[in-house]
C-alpha cells in the first residue's frame, strides 16, 4: 500500500470507529453514572441496551413510528425499566455487602436476556429500514447516512446529558449524592429519588444506543447486549469509572482502536484489542485516563 491509500484507509477507519465508539459511549455513560452514585457495576446495563433495541423495534414495526418518536419511546420505556430494576432488585440490597449486589446485577442480566427470549423468541429480528441508507462519497471516503445519524444522535444526547448534570438542580443533586450521600441528605436532597433518576437517565441513553445499532446493523437479538455491554464497561473503566466525560472519551477511543485493528490487522483481533486495553489500564492506571490518582475513600 502506498502512503495515499494508507492515509485514506486510516481516515475511513476513523469514521467507522467514531460511529461505533459513540454507541459505546452512550452505553458507557450509564455504567459510569450508576457506578458513580451507588458504586455498582451494573452488569445488567448491556441488557437494558438490548431492551431498548426491542422497544425501538416494536415502535417502528408495530406502531409505525418514525425515527424520532421511536427512539423517544425506547428511551422512556428503558428509563422506566431502569427505575423498576433499581427499586425492586438493587435498593433492598443497598446496605448489603458489595458482592451480593454484584451477583444480583448478574441475576438481573440473565433475567432480562431470558425473559426477552421467552417473549420475542431467541431468533434475531430484522429491524425495519426506517432510513434509506444513502452513501456519501467524499473523495475516496465513504460515509453512510446511518453513521451520520448515529454520530449526530449521540452528540445531541451527550450535550443534553452534560447540560442536565452540570446546569440543572437535579444534576447537581446527582453529583452531590455521588460524592457524599450523607452530606447530600443534609442539604435536603432525596437520595432515593436521585438514584432513580440516575438509573432512568443511564438506561435511556443505553436504549438510544440500542435503537441506533438496530438501525445500523438491521438485526437485534436477546443476547445482543452482552458484547457491547462488556465493551462499554471497558470504555467506562478506560475513561475513569464514575467520570462522565471519561465515559464519552473512553467510548470513542475504544471504538477507534477497534476499527483501526479491524482495518489494519484483522477483525478477529478486534475484541482482543479491547480486552488488552482493559488489562493495560487496570495494570498501569486503574483510575482511568481522566481519573485522579487517589486511593478510594474508605
Amino acid at each position: 500500500m502506498d502512503m495515499g491509500s494508507l492515509l485514506h484507509q486510516f481516515i475511513q477507519q476513523m469514521i467507522n470507529g467514531i460511529s461505533l465508539g459513540s454507541i459505546y459511549a452512550l452505553i458507557a455513560l450509564g455504567y459510569t453514572m450508576i457506578y458513580g452514585i451507588i458504586k455498582l457495576i451494573n452488569f445488567a446495563h448491556g441488557d437494558i441496551y438490548m431492551v431498548g433495541a426491542y422497544l425501538g423495534f416494536i415502535a417502528t414495526t408495530y406502531l409505525g413510528f418514525g425515527f424520532l418518536p421511536a427512539i423517544i419511546f425506547a428511551m422512556l420505556g428503558a428509563g422506566l425499566a431502569g427505575i423498576i430494576i433499581e427499586r425492586v432488585a438493587y435498593r433492598p440490597m443497598r446496605n448489603a455487602p458489595r458482592i451480593a449486589i454484584l451477583i444480583t446485577a448478574i441475576g438481573v442480566s440473565f433475567f432480562l436476556e431470558y425473559t426477552m427470549m421467552l417473549i420475542a423468541s431467541p431468533q434475531p429480528r430484522t429491524f425495519p429500514a426506517i432510513f434509506e441508507a444513502t452513501v456519501y462519497h467524499l473523495g475516496p471516503l465513504v460515509v453512510n447516512s446511518q453513521q451520520i445519524l448515529i454520530l449526530v444522535s449521540a452528540l445531541v444526547l451527550m450535550v443534553a446529558l452534560s447540560y442536565i448534570v452540570n446546569k440543572t438542580k437535579a444534576g447537581m443533586a446527582m453529583r452531590a449524592v455521588s460524592f457524599d450521600a450523607d452530606a447530600a441528605q443534609l442539604m435536603g436532597i432525596n437520595v432515593d429519588k436521585t438514584i432513580s433518576l440516575t438509573f432512568a437517565l443511564g438506561s435511556a441513553l443505553a436504549a438510544a444506543g440500542g435503537v441506533l445499532v438496530g438501525i445500523y446493523y438491521n438485526s437485534i437479538d436477546p443476547l445482543m447486549g452482552m458484547m457491547p455491554g462488556m465493551k462499554a464497561f471497558i470504555a467506562a473503566v478506560l475513561g475513569g469509572i464514575g467520570i462522565i466525560p471519561g465515559a464519552m472519551a473512553g467510548g470513542l477511543i475504544l471504538g477507534v482502536v477497534e476499527a483501526l485493528v479491524s482495518g489494519f490487522i484483522s477483525s478477529t483481533f478486534r475484541d482482543a484489542a479491547s480486552f488488552a486495553i482493559l488489562i493495560l489500564i487496570l495494570l498501569y492506571k486503574p483510575t482511568g485516563l481522566l481519573g485522579k490518582n487517589v486511593r478510594e475513600k474508605v
Binding site: 438542580k169 447537581m172 443533586a173 452531590a176 457524599d180 450523607d182 452530606a183
Partner: peptide
C-alpha cells in the same frame, strides 16, 4: 463534608436546595 469537587458557590447553592 463539603462537596470538594464542586465550587464554593455550588456548595452554597446546594445548601438552598
Amino acid at each position: 463534608h463539603v462537596f470538594s469537587n464542586m465550587t464554593v458557590m455550588e456548595n452554597l447553592q446546594l445548601g438552598a436546595y
